[in-house]
């Protein structure tokens, strides 16, 4: 349904020829540049912007939970533009089919062969809008792509181009005709973020910027895909000492002891990875508890189910409580 990628990555059998990591300071300045660049367009969401950049560096995907019209799409687009990579957008609807996401084999009359038409998932920054409006089967097609960084169509596996980051949005106001994401799938998003309404000053600034030429039009890339891939290697190499690992474990345990469903080990891993990215953002090659704390709410809150079943709010409260009470060592 959207513009197909003319050069999809062929079925990948690439080895582990991972790119050389950037030095930490370069990675830090890269991340800083991206954040600044995005903020040319997005006003008043510095924290969210940082979270998104760290999620990309930590190979994570994002879930934006929000009311419509607060700039989710714009955020994703400016991000894709800043990194100079491909941006794709899928509007999830109740009738959206899995192949609408992943791509489909089309019979070529001339060559009399089936030819794979890549879906919108073959992009570097993929905005999956209103993911909760699509039926579970379609959702899970996207989620598999997120988890595996590859898609399988008719038995054929296609590796996705890196960096690959999904920014999915959910609208709170959907009411009926939505399919709530199952907890197992929501767990695959590294972070859940909320933009929220801008403050009056920020909003008037937004209005000032969009009059005339939209700032996104003039946005220049500040990083290449290759640089992002290398920065990801940097993040992966960040030291996380036992003290930090144990702190993460204690946080997870704290939620497990107090919620119906606590943070999964996948959540702990995500938190540590996010912490690594946060450390790089700060120009360090080691994680400190502060990094973990900075990421904890965004990474953990959607993974816990409290008894009240009041959703993210009480999850966030529990995480805040954990940060307050779990001793830092």
């Amino acid at each position: 349904m959207t513009d197909a990628n003319p050069n999809p990555t062929p079925p990948s059998r690439r080895g582990d020829d991972s790119p050389t990591p950037l030095p930490v300071d370069e990675a830090a300045s890269l991340a800083g540049r991206i954040v600044e660049n995005v903020e040319e367009v997005i006003v008043g969401h510095h924290d969210v912007t940082e979270h998104i950049v760290t999620a990309i560096l930590a190979r994570g995907h994002l879930l934006l939970d929000d009311v419509p019209g607060v700039g989710k799409t714009m955020l994703a687009r400016s991000l894709a533009r800043s990194i100079d990579c491909e941006f794709k957008r899928v509007q999830f609807t109740p009738d959206l089919m899995p192949t609408d996401v992943t791509g489909v084999n089309v019979f070529d009359e001339r060559s009399r062969e089936f030819e794979f038409r890549p879906g919108p998932v073959f992009g570097n920054v993929v905005l999956a809008d209103e993911i909760n409006r699509a039926p579970p089967k379609t959702q899970s097609a996207l989620l598999e792509a997120m988890e595996e960084s590859q898609v399988t169509v008719d038995g054929e596996t296609y590796r996705l181009d890196q960096p690959f980051t999904v920014i999915a949005t959910q609208n709170d106001v959907g009411g009926d005709r939505t399919y709530e994401l199952p907890i197992a799938e929501i767990d695959r998003f590294m972070k859940q973020l909320t933009l929220g309404y801008p403050s009056p000053e920020d909003e008037s600034e937004v209005l000032r910027r969009v009059t005339g030429r939209h700032p996104i039009e003039g946005l220049d890339p500040v990083a290449t895909g290759e640089e992002v891939r290398r920065a990801r290697e940097t993040v992966a190499g960040v030291t996380a000492e036992a003290a930090v690992r144990e702190y993460v474990t204690r946080l997870a345990n704290y939620t497990r002891e107090r919620a119906d469903l606590g943070v999964s080990p996948r959540g702990s891993i995500a938190l540590l990875r996010a912490g690594q990215a946060r450390a790089v953002l700060d120009g360090r090659d080691y994680v400190v508890p502060d990094d973990v704390q900075a990421e904890a709410e965004a990474v953990l809150r959607h993974r816990v189910r409290t008894g009240a079943e009041t959703g993210g709010a009480s999850g966030a409260a529990l995480i805040a409580e954990a940060l307050e009470n779990v001793p830092v060592s």
Partner: peptide, 9 residues
């Protein structure tokens, strides 16, 4: 130092 407070904080 409060329990959840990092040394840096």
């Amino acid at each position: 130092r409060r329990p959840g407070e990092t040394p840096r904080e």
